[in-house]
Design a protein around this nucleic acid. Structure first.
Lengths: 217, 217
DNA sequence: CAAGCAATCTTGACACTGTCTATATTGAAC
DNA sequence: GTTCAATATAGACAGTGTCAAGATTGCTTG
């Protein structure tokens, strides 16, 4: 641990001019502020003050507030990909209604557990600004690609040619996203109903993927 | 038209101290600013300046910015109720997949055509603030009640006892809301796919309401 | 018609915000 | 050891929401 005394990990020094780990701490503190006080409670100045640096110090790590928010959202996407892409679903060996149910529950749970990230990841604040970080757009597109791939695997596993994977991905993701937002934004208040709603959605998806009886037209 | 010359419709007078129609104009100009410049472009001061009144004049019609936003959202809900509740759907005489399709398209179209209202009506900005106007909460609850009623009528018309109206309302509304938000927030960019997505969603709803063959378990 | 009152509008002020500029300090490279 | 780029700093400016105190008006009541 302490084998590299000349490294930046020396918290005992009074107040080193160079903070050393500021970027990381900015991202963490910003997420904390968002979670605890909402978007209105996050300001660059308060952020700096809470970390004990000057007001303009964060601007050496993020071009502006927008770039900081992009940075937070980016971390959120990396996190989301991990959560959604957990085996065995991507392998698609044994697709079933239960598997879909787990998938839905996981997505919704992620959005609730990481509400402050989710709001940035899919909020107009970033996407309508035309000022997205390049790394963020890459990360976001990757996430959607993984989702479509998941749908495609399900479809092939079931051999249902009536499903257009892209369309089904768009609509099913809309459902997940809609549920998440309604819960996060405080419109659906009954938190105990989350699982029931998730299962209802999963059942709806499953009936689309694998209808009880094939109908020609 | 001009039969009441002593009414407040006298625009030729230079600059009457009492504006006369300020509240209405504030709501309109605020919606215009939101639509054209986004939420960041709406400020109480700019609003006042554009209308040619002092900075604090709007505060005599709205307690604070939050109350103004509530006022805009309220108008949005009234508008939404009109759009969704158009006959013959609430009567439910002839429910069909086509009717569901029209319903879905209408909802999504409303959200796109009135994006600046929709964002406020269903945004965290208002709902998580714990400072909702009372008239707004009433209006919003009414909207959801109408929606559930719609679902109930459909269900009874179809005689499918397997559907829990509340659950189905929650999930289907999530889908509509999710699609709307993804489009409004600029995440789903391909505007030409809106109708295809809407119809895919309608088909999914219809298959839930009226499955091809009843399955016991 | 006069007086008064409540609604409406105004200016002034305060604390806060994002962000630009110019300056200072530092760790590392040559 | 000098130089340089990265990093930190204070100062300043325009913009924000909103409170307090005063000015102007139209309606109401006598």
């Amino acid at each position: 641990m302490t084998s590299h005394p000349e490294s930046a990990s020396c918290p005992t020094s009074e107040k080193p001019y160079h903070h050393g780990d500021l970027r990381r701490q900015i991202l963490d503190e910003a997420a904390r502020l968002l979670r605890e006080e909402g978007e209105a409670g996050l300001s660059m100045r308060k952020l700096a003050q809470n970390l004990g640096v000057s007001r303009t110090a964060p601007y050496h790590h993020f071009a502006d507030k927008q770039a900081l928010l992009c940075g937070i959202a980016e971390e959120g996407f990396r996190h989301l990909r991990e959560v959604v892409r957990t085996p065995p679903y991507i392998e698609g060996a044994e697709i079933s209604e239960a598997a879909v149910r787990v998938f839905v529950r996981r997505y919704v749970q992620f959005s609730i557990d990481n509400a402050e990230y989710y709001e940035l990841m899919f909020g107009a604040r970033l996407w309508k600004s035309q000022q997205l970080t390049e790394s963020l757009t890459v990360e976001a597109h990757n996430a959607f690609k993984v989702y479509i791939e998941q749908i495609r695997v399900w479809q092939q596993s079931i051999r249902n040619p009536n499903i257009d994977p892209l369309r089904f991905a768009q609509v099913s993701w809309s459902t997940l996203h809609g549920m998440s937002r309604l819960l996060i934004d405080g419109i659906y208040l009954d938190a105990t109903a989350i699982n029931v709603m998730s299962d209802t959605a999963a059942k709806m998806f499953w009936q689309q993927l694998c209808p009880p009886s094939q109908v020609a037209s």
